[in-house]
Amino acid sequence: MSRQANRGTESKKMSSELFTLTYGALVTQLCKDYENDEDVNKQLDKMGYNIGVRLIEDFLARSNVGRCHDFRETADVIAKVAFKMYLGITPSITNWSPAGDEFSLILENNPLVDFVELPDNHSSLIYSNLLCGVLRGALEMVQMAVEAKFVQDTLKGDGVTEIRMRFIRRIEDNLPAGEE
């Protein structure tokens, strides 16, 4: 109940360094625990998914956005409202597919990877894969099945970080995707 009162413009301030270091500690622990980077990527995606299915509620309550009519609107909301609200950045939306079911989010800077340098033996690690899971889980809760994946990453030497989002299908109400 107290959440309702705090909703609106006030976002609780937390140190971004603490957030970045926490995420970093999480990823390195996973790297230690799992034998290869693919497993780590999967795990990050799973964790992100669990965050996303819950975060969507907070998001909808705080942002007061209405139902999106098409995928384009969804893209706008994700980039301009959601990313801004939770990570303080506004990625740009580009590379729409002709059918309007795929787009890219371009992140000039990614707060998750401040100070991070990938060592050579982790070349196939998708460090920020948590974000993909978050997007997937959140959208599933609003009846959209999507695929999100990183196609460019500043950590791997690319100029920008690019997440490719693809709309798969609308989810019917009586077929819950279920948690993994």
């Binding site: 390195t28 100070f115 340098e117």
Partner: peptide, 19 residues
């Protein structure tokens, strides 16, 4: 300080950061 914040860097190891 940035090097220390890299989660892949173990404090006390030799610094090999490209940055």
């Amino acid at each position: 300080t940035d090097v220390m914040c890299n989660p892949f860097y173990n404090p006390g190891d030799r610094i090999q950061s490209r940055a």
